[in-house]
Simulated scan of single mutants.
Amino acid sequence: MRSGRMRLDRAVMQGFYDRMRLVAPAAYGAIERDRADDPGRAFAETACGRLAGSLDAAGLRALGMWAHHWCMRFYDDDTRVGVRLVREIAGRRGLGWTVDEVRWLLDQSYAAGPAAPHRFTLPLAAEAELPTGAECGRAAGRPADGAG
């Protein structure tokens, strides 16, 4: 993690990657199907929407983390489907985000830099779900609007 930020335990991070690895094949397939489909289709009718609808809260958090990670690492002009998925998950309430998950999301967002304009969409939504006073290593200098 970045200097000055709270470090996550390796076992915790490995657990995140293990959970994301479980949803990755279905998520990648859904994104690829949706890229070739009608972009105006209602989210629930898309492959990503059907996948998101089939998961419990923990699975949806893992899917959100994977999609966020994928969009941050492979940001280009063709991430609109992934960004839509991230936005849809960010709009869900009561997913039970943990402080460590929010720390990881924020770190990924800061590391991505301004080339990824949607980098704070999910972390800020997840952060807003944390109990008041939860310490997730919020760094100074985060854009006030979260846009980046």
Rank of each mutant, 00 (worst) to 15 (best):
M1C: 11
R2Y: 02
R2K: 14
S3R: 10
G4A: 11
M6E: 12
R7T: 12
L8E: 02
L8D: 08
D9L: 07
Q14M: 10
G15Y: 08
G15M: 08
F16T: 05
Y17M: 13
Y17T: 15
D18A: 15
R19I: 00
M20G: 03
R21P: 00
L22G: 11
A24V: 07
A26G: 02
Y28K: 12
G29P: 07
G29C: 05
G29K: 06
G29H: 03
I31F: 09
I31M: 12
R33N: 09
R35L: 15
A36Q: 14
D37K: 09
P39W: 11
G40P: 01
R41V: 12
A42S: 12
A42L: 10
F43C: 05
A44P: 02
T46S: 15
R50C: 06
R50V: 11
A52Y: 00
G53C: 03
S54L: 07
L55A: 14
A57Y: 02
A57T: 04
A57D: 13
A58R: 07
L60G: 00
R61Y: 00
L63V: 09
M65I: 04
A67K: 01
W70N: 06
C71L: 11
M72L: 13
M72C: 13
F74C: 10
F74A: 09
D77G: 15
D78Y: 15
T79W: 02
V83A: 12
L85W: 07
V86L: 01
R87H: 07
R87G: 15
G91H: 04
R92F: 00
R92T: 04
R93I: 00
L95T: 05
L95C: 07
L95M: 10
L95V: 08
W97S: 06
W97R: 03
W97C: 01
V99F: 05
V99S: 11
V99N: 03
V99D: 08
D100A: 14
D100R: 03
D100I: 00
E101W: 03
V102I: 06
V102D: 01
R103M: 15
R103T: 12
L105M: 10
L105I: 06
L106N: 10
Y110E: 15
Y110S: 10
A112F: 07
A112E: 08
A116I: 01
P117C: 03
R119T: 14
R119C: 09
F120P: 02
T121K: 01
P123R: 00
P123F: 01
L124R: 15
L124S: 05
A125W: 01
A125R: 05
A125E: 05
A128C: 05
L130D: 06
P131H: 09
G133Y: 08
G133E: 10
R138V: 06
A140F: 01
G141E: 02
G141D: 06
A144K: 07
A144N: 02
D145L: 12
G146M: 14
G146W: 11
A147V: 14
G148F: 11
